[in-house]
Nucleic acid binder design. Sequence first.
DNA 1: CCTGCCGCCTGCGCGC
DNA 2: TGCGCGCAGGCGGCAG
Length: 284
Amino acid sequence: MPELPEVEVVRRGLERWVAGRTVAAVSVAHPRSVRRHVLGAVDFSARLAGRRVVGARRRGKYLWLPLDSDDAVIAHLGMSGQLLVRPALEPDETHLRVRVTFTDAGGELRFVDQRTFGGLAYESGGALLPRSLAHIAPDPLDPAYDAPTVVMALRRRRTGLKRALLDQTLVSGIGNIYADEALWRAGLHYARATDTLTRAEALRLLSQARAVMTEALAAGGTSFDALYVDVNGRGGYFDRSLAVYGRAGRPCRRCGAPIRRDPFMNRSSFTCPRCQPRPRRGRW
DNA sequence: CCTGCCGCCTGCGCGC
DNA sequence: TGCGCGCAGGCGGCAG
């Protein structure tokens, strides 16, 4: 469940339903889901057993559960990952990859991931900010986020605007949906060269990115299908408020022109051709 | 350093 | 009905 609002919905669920509980046992059904844990699945399970989860934190699209050992379990949902809190008696999901049981009578935590791009890892000393996430920039909802710093960094880049927005080392949490939505709100085209942006344009874009993700979070995130759900399996309803993403051929909510879809980095970009004219000399 | 491309996976809907 | 293709909210590693 990819982008910042959806991941934050999951974080809140973990904080409510998992924090404070002590792990009884961990079983890894698919080793690929713990591939980032270098010492392997058996070691991963052994380190986690007996530990108490003390919270649930997030930076960009990464989650981590700080533990009473001052270590942390890092989680990334990739394209199709889910973290679900389910009664132990519920049948296993088809793509159940990791199961965490607790010493109390509450539900178990399940990592379900169809495509296995996501995964879990145990990191020593990672409770505050895991070392493996040091390259991830603060996201727009983080108190450590400083827009003027990002504006400067963005304008120093020599690339296309959407590429930069998707670069998690510049600003984190933005993915394909909210990049397109922020660009539409700011009236900027995805191929605009970053080094031609004015400070005002860059600031406007970042403000719109934060605004759209804040609104999406309030709606529980964007859920086109059952893959994107909170820890209790419920989806959000921000898909109704999307202006361009997934709306090819339908009228722009601002000017009525048909939204267009362009191939972009083996995926798609959605724009309003009138509100976001392609720059004469853009950059892919 | 910085930028851009590729591969990693499974499943679904579409056209033939 | 079956099959191949394109497509899907992402990322790390590596080449140039």
